[in-house]
Design a binder for these strands. Sequence first.
DNA 1: TCTAAGTGCAGCATTTAAGTTGCAGATAAC
DNA 2: GTTATCTGCAACTTAAATGCTGCACTTAGA
Lengths: 186, 186
Amino acid sequence: MTRLGTVRADAARNLEAVLTTGARMLAADPGASIASIAAEAGVDRSTVYRRFASREDLLAAIYDARLTAIEQAITDARLREAPVAVALHRYVENIITVNRTWPVDLGRMLADDTVHSRRDAAVQEVDTFLERAVDEGLLRTGLPEGWASVLLPQLVHLVSRQRPELGPGQAADIVVNTFLHGLGVS
Amino acid sequence: MTRLGTVRADAARNLEAVLTTGARMLAADPGASIASIAAEAGVDRSTVYRRFASREDLLAAIYDARLTAIEQAITDARLREAPVAVALHRYVENIITVNRTWPVDLGRMLADDTVHSRRDAAVQEVDTFLERAVDEGLLRTGLPEGWASVLLPQLVHLVSRQRPELGPGQAADIVVNTFLHGLGVS
DNA sequence: TCTAAGTGCAGCATTTAAGTTGCAGATAAC
DNA sequence: GTTATCTGCAACTTAAATGCTGCACTTAGA
């Protein structure tokens, strides 16, 4: 380590590597050990413990990164003002990118109050958007309560994992098309 | 224990309780300990170890139960002979029931060769059925390769968890309708 | 009544991961 | 050149889960 670059730049790189590698490994196996994450990130186990007081602290940092990315994705999609069709596609595209960098499942961290409320706020924002989508005639009326709200993230999650070869735009095309029209004829 | 009923009947009940409780708890948290599963199932930790040589053995028994239920669900739906619309609904309905009893994710057990091949066979069966659904005009042509094949189980999984209040038939209605037509207007 | 099967309970050894710390080496900044 | 910072390495302690076993107790069935 530290053959090239500055000490501080290395430190920053290591921090990011631990976070993103941790996110990836914890998504694949929520029980992944700090040792295995550190090894995969190319740092020593003790280095991780010098940055994060505990395993839970590392998890919190990862979930925080995901939440921040989600909030940014929502803001960027302008869910409240943009035309619903445009906002939907952009939101999906953004979240696909988020899912690929921070694939961890927030459902596993709802014990933390901060995580819980930030997540609720994001969900609420999307729910409101979906209501607008109904009002403006993009989505059918009379759908099962909350169904759109759980279906959309699931489709995004699915395409994020199953279609790594597609860019976010193309992947979003599939999600939006499936979300609106399904796979049946006509 | 064993205030009512026979010793053997108790033993059978305990075995089933450990398996189903284990499936439920491991689905919620793959790292759930044998001790916590035993406690939830109302038996002693040692009883679990008398029936299963190891933790892995217990997991194998649970995955085996799920696989068997899936195979039964496929057979019962008559995916090869029944009209595609009928077979689809019946398959979905059956798998919803399977998911509710054995919610564990098989993806976590693909190390085991037997599990892997049995799962592959089941997936292949459904894939073939989906091809027939395209041939017979139920599904669109030109869909992304393998997309229907991963979407359908995901929808079933989603509705199994998110709509516990619905019977398998009604839940299957939602899945099939979403699968074929999405949530958009017309 | 006697036996076999099953169970809870308590205790044990082993393993694994978490978390901590001291030391020496490397490098950027001064 | 000196110092402060970051690192890997190695050596702990502690906590928790796995896996095993002996003992007493209960009950069904011979």
